[in-house]
């Protein structure tokens, strides 16, 4: 059943898959509903592992009394239908799934990423407004840019432009500070 997003009352089925907007009978909001076959599909039933009889083949690594149906594509352990996790057309076991998630090896399981390139660029640009903090932030920015150069940033298409800009800016700031300090030292000695 599809509900109106405004008043949460069920929408009439006559309103479905029409190219134009139709009013919700309860609140009058103009609504368009585009439906797909999944709406009418019965929810998938979870698979149950087949019990292993004495003379039948291999057993599952995790459930010794269940029949193995497929090996894990990552570690090679035999898996029953219950333990077989299908992800991205690959069959893997729950422990590989867990380790893949914690070690960030499976991109499809990641739901958050830190954008180190943006952090580094901000660290190189924002302190420029007050100038003095750059004596600390420029080396920090340079260090972080080198430290996180190979760390994946966004999973969306993205270049290394921010890292390169940050390194260039931080480098210029460091050179600037070296020149200022050198000038001051020379002047002090001259005086």
């Amino acid at each position: 059943m599809v509900h109106c997003v405004k008043c949460e009352n069920p929408l009439p089925w006559e309103a479905f898959s029409r190219a134009d907007l139709s009013p919700c009978p309860s609140c009058g909001a103009l609504v368009r509903v585009d439906i797909f076959p999944a709406l009418f599909r019965e929810p998938d039933q979870g698979r149950r592992g087949e019990t292993l009889s004495a003379d039948q083949g291999a057993s599952c690594f995790y459930h010794h009394n269940k029949k193995a149906v497929i090996p894990c594509e990552s570690c090679g352990r035999f898996l029953c239908a219950l333990c077989d996790v299908e992800l991205n057309d690959r069959h893997i076991c729950p422990s590989c799934l867990e380790s893949g998630k914690t070690q960030r090896k499976i991109t499809h399981l990641e739901n958050n990423r830190v954008l180190y390139d943006t952090i580094v660029l901000a660290l190189a640009v924002i302190p420029l407004l007050m100038i003095w903090p750059t004596i600390l932030t420029a080396p920090a920015s340079l260090f972080l840019a080198i430290r996180y150069w190979n760390t994946p940033t966004s999973i969306l298409p993205r270049t290394k432009f921010r890292f390169i800009s940050a390194i260039s800016l931080a480098g210029l700031q460091i050179v600037g500070w070296i020149m200022i300090i050198g000038f001051m030292v020379t002047r002090t000695r001259g005086a």
Partner: peptide, 26 residues
Amino acid sequence: AVQSRYFSEDYKRFYFKDIQCLVTCK
């Protein structure tokens, strides 16, 4: 679906096989 907040991004995935409908309200 990506929600960006300056220094981090949150992701939500909706698999094509699971999408039942899109409801648009003016």
